[in-house]
Computed example of a mutant assay.
Amino acid sequence: MFMDLDQGAGVGDPSPMVARHREYYGSLGMFEEMPRPAQPLCSGCRWEVVQGFGAGFTEVLHLGSGPNVGICGYKFDTAPEGDYRKYCSSLQFSIMLTGSFRISSLGDGRSETVRAGDVWFSAEGAEDEVRCTHPAGELISGVSVEVSRSMLDHWLGTASCKLSRTLERMVDKRLSHREFMVCGSFPRMRCLSACHPLMQVARSLLMTEHDTVCGRLMFESRALDYLSQALALDGSLPERMQEDRSQRRKAVEAAVDILDEEWGAPPTISALSRRVGVNECYLKTDFRERTGLSIGEYVRRIRMESALALIESSRCSVLQAATFVGYSNPSHFSRAFKRFHGYLPSSCLCR
């Protein structure tokens, strides 16, 4: 979805950035490059989805103040794949606003699914041959901002502070040995809520028109606002992320234990997330990765397996089994039982 945006040899020269977009979106065969007149304050190119393949656009802009910005919003009728060479010349922050896509390294085969609310960064020198797979019928939208080399050097040369130390660690090439995400990228935050300030400023950046002088000034202002908030996100450093992952694994195990004990009257997802100490988005995502099931599917499996065991043991009637596993309506229980096991509970009594 987001190409890595290179600053050209001269100020305002976006040709390497545009070349990489042409390579990637050309490989999909679903985009057409649109003519874009030269404009003051920013320059770049725009591609639109060809009619019959879906709808939407992707655009890359080089701002006069230094950053390169990528914005997109599109939907495909079929699920395409595209290959390209991923390279970052400085430091880039990307955020997924809606939808999801899968990115895979053609070198080592590792892959990662990026979802709405995910924020990640790529450090200088990160390079890989990658493949992106987009789902059909899903709106893909997001924002990507790359800091120019001159901006980064200026920031790193300022007085030492917490933010400059954070930047130093991000551009440290030793990060390339920490495999937190495929293709030379590193997650900064996962599953931000739709009301998070960074999500809000990214949405406003995506929606800002930039065909007028006032619009371009507003666009650049919001791009810098997005960049400052992305840099200021808490919990972004690798050591902190390792701790967070460990805590989240423990939270999922605690959630499994709670559901194993309380499946007859399980807590709501909101209540469960509070009890184990993680937000709902993390809990739902990590729970599925741990069990292969959603929280609701996990509870239904326990209920249906328990009901089958009760009926086959001849200790309970169908009505008693339904009541025991938490169903007050026998018809609802019978339908749920058949969906899970493939046959009605009454057929167990005849065996």
Score class of each variant (00 low, 15 high):
Thr98Ile: 01
Val318Ile: 10
Asp260Phe: 11
Cys195Arg: 14
Pro14Leu: 08
Arg115Leu: 11
Val60Gly: 03
Ser294Trp: 05
Ser346Val: 01
Glu48Asp: 13
Val147Ser: 03
Glu81Met: 11
Pro67Lys: 04
Ala9His: 13
His210Lys: 11
His21Trp: 08
Val130Asp: 06
Ala116Trp: 04
Thr113Pro: 03
Lys75Thr: 14
Cys161Lys: 00
Asp257Pro: 00
Val182Leu: 05
Leu206Ser: 02
Ser193Leu: 12
Ser221Gln: 12
Met181Ile: 00
Cys316Val: 05
Glu32Met: 12
Cys132Gly: 04
Tyr25Met: 06
Phe337Gly: 03
Ser346Cys: 03
Tyr343Pro: 00
Ile258Leu: 15
Arg36Tyr: 09
Leu192Asn: 02
Asp6Leu: 14
Ile103Tyr: 03
Gln229Leu: 15
Tyr24Arg: 07
Arg335Ala: 13
His154Phe: 11
Asp13Cys: 05
Gly66Pro: 04
Glu32Ala: 15
Tyr84Met: 04
Ser246Ile: 06
Arg102Cys: 07
Pro16Val: 00
Trp263Asp: 05
Thr166Met: 13
Gly264Thr: 02
Ser15Leu: 12
Gly296Ala: 13
Gly109Val: 06
Arg85Cys: 07
Arg288Asp: 05
Cys72Asn: 10
Gly109Pro: 09
Ala38Ser: 10
Asp108Ala: 06
Ser204Thr: 09
Leu205His: 01
Phe101Cys: 06
Asn68Phe: 05
Val201Pro: 00
Gly26Thr: 03
Ser111Arg: 11
Arg85Glu: 14
Val299Asp: 03
Thr166Phe: 10
Ser160Ala: 14
Cys348Leu: 15
Val276Ala: 03
Ala116Cys: 05
Arg131Phe: 01
Lys162Cys: 10
Thr166Cys: 12
Ser144Asp: 12
Met189Leu: 13
Val18Lys: 08
Gly52Pro: 04
Tyr298Pro: 01
Glu168Arg: 14
Val60Ile: 15
Gly12Leu: 09
Gly296Gln: 09
Leu310Phe: 12
Met34Cys: 05
Gly10Cys: 06
Tyr84Ala: 01
Leu231Asp: 04
Val119Thr: 04
Cys45Ser: 13
Glu81Arg: 15
Tyr87Met: 07
Leu272Met: 05
Ala255Thr: 02
Phe101Glu: 08
Gly12Arg: 04
Lys284Gln: 13
Arg203Asp: 02
Ser104Asn: 03
Arg203Met: 14
Val299Gln: 09
Thr158Gly: 15
Asp211His: 13
Val119Lys: 02
Gly157Leu: 04
Met34Lys: 15
Arg240Thr: 06
Val171His: 12
Leu217His: 13
Gly125Ala: 10
Phe333Tyr: 05
Gly44Ala: 06
Glu297Gly: 10
Arg203Lys: 14
Tyr298Ser: 02
Arg115Cys: 11
Leu167Trp: 08
Met218Ala: 13
Arg20Pro: 01
Asp234Arg: 15
Leu283Tyr: 03
Tyr226Glu: 03
Asp257Met: 15
